[in-house]
Design a protein around this nucleic acid. Structure first.
Lengths: 230, 230
DNA sequence: CAGTGGTCTAGACCACGAG
DNA sequence: TCGTGGTCTAGACCACTGC
């Protein structure tokens, strides 16, 4: 009869939320009581409830207790795969091509000034990733030149800077923005679509503590869908 | 000298990954050894490493050991707030207005057939959420009529169906899709933008086990940005 | 101050999976 | 087979927070 593993406890708790034994906003029994009821250690109950609180299903507060969250739709997990892997997972052939590369750039777009200062030296890279030869996404990337001291011009000729950065430059955190834009003439030519077509853009900035490592703008082909799960 | 809490262990591990004592792809010492080195219990090390594995920083495999992930950019957390809360957090006034509502609809769009079967009875709702009176997002929602047995026509006159569903209909999981589209004439009129402008769309479907509860398509005003963190 | 969750410990056994 | 992470237990003390 005893539930003696944390996943079992989690399932039972979810069941009770689900059948409305415990309703949204209501307080549920304290860990000690649940442990007694389930016939397991309090730590086991704690692990189960903590996991649910992480997911946003429960709210926990010391001294007050654990309540069923009023609005559990709070968090979604988004897997951000390597572009190469994303394309290969579609069963198609991946290809990377460098379009343009330059050094000693200064931030020349508004969005960059959020992250870089006006005198920063940046490496600029423009590249395209293709799936079975068809344009998949355009990459516009700025890299803080300080963090690539021995930069060579051949560096990103063959390989995506993203993969090189991930393997060589550790980061502490990052920001991502998603948006929709009417695509410019330049981009539409590269993606082989019409100017003005709506395209999905992802802007990602990664940091090493306070310092910006890189800022990248990815402009996807127009039928791209990003998926996540709740 | 001892590190005797899991956050401390986590910090130390991150430090070593960061200063490249442990490089991407490399195996790190086993839990027992780290516990001995840090002077704490193995469970404490386990908790720290498990948390990092959840974040995608480490890969763990039984019998093999723990390795530093090659491509740590794997997961981002995305907070999906209530629209009302999102608007109120901007410091603006929130308003909800029902545009149209009908019952006994059948799935009439391709995307719906992924989730509903052709004979399902659905409630359809079209509504607009405004921020200081300006259009913010259009909501097109289908609700499985089976799960709202006592549906009244006034139900969503004053309040967003989303909030009602969250508080009253429990769900087990959901899917989210993000896309960019050129907006239609109808939508552009509602959002007060030009037809063809690129708009950000979020399609969300929630399930109660295998059964679909609701499918909603949110079409945001054109300058909307969705943010997430790594 | 007192009640609740948060965490640590030492030892034990289990489950997966590489060889 | 057997090494590694995964988990459980019982008991203890800590930390936050409402009263």
């Amino acid at each position: 009869m005893a539930i003696n593993n944390w996943l079992g406890v989690q399932t039972e708790v979810l069941k009770r939320i689900h059948d409305r034994t415990w309703k949204p906003g209501e307080i549920i029994p304290r860990e000690t009581d649940l442990a007694y009821e389930f016939g397991c250690a309090r730590v086991t109950v704690n692990r189960a409830l903590r996991a649910l609180a992480d997911k946003g299903v429960l709210d926990r507060k010391r001294k007050v207790g654990t309540t069923v969250a009023l609005y559990p739709t709070s968090k979604a997990t988004l897997k951000i795969p390597l572009i190469r892997k994303e394309i290969q997972d579609l069963g198609t052939t991946y290809n990377y091509k460098l379009i343009r590369q330059s050094t000693n750039q200064t931030p020349n777009e508004k969005r960059l000034l959020t992250h870089f200062s006006i005198n920063d030296n940046l490496i600029y890279i423009e590249a395209i990733h293709t799936s079975d030869g068809k344009p998949f996404v355009i990459e516009n990337r700025f890299i803080n030149q300080k963090i690539v001291p021995n930069f060579k011009n051949q560096q990103f000729e063959e390989n995506s800077p993203n993969e090189w950065l991930l393997a060589n430059i550790p980061y502490t955190h990052g920001e991502i923005n998603f948006a929709a834009t009417n695509c410019s003439v330049d981009i539409s030519t590269l993606l082989d679509i019409n100017p003005g077509d709506a395209v999905f853009q992802v802007e990602r900035t990664t940091f090493d503590k306070e310092e910006v490592i890189t800022n990248v703008l990815l402009t996807y082909h127009k039928d791209y869908r990003l998926k996540a799960s709740l």
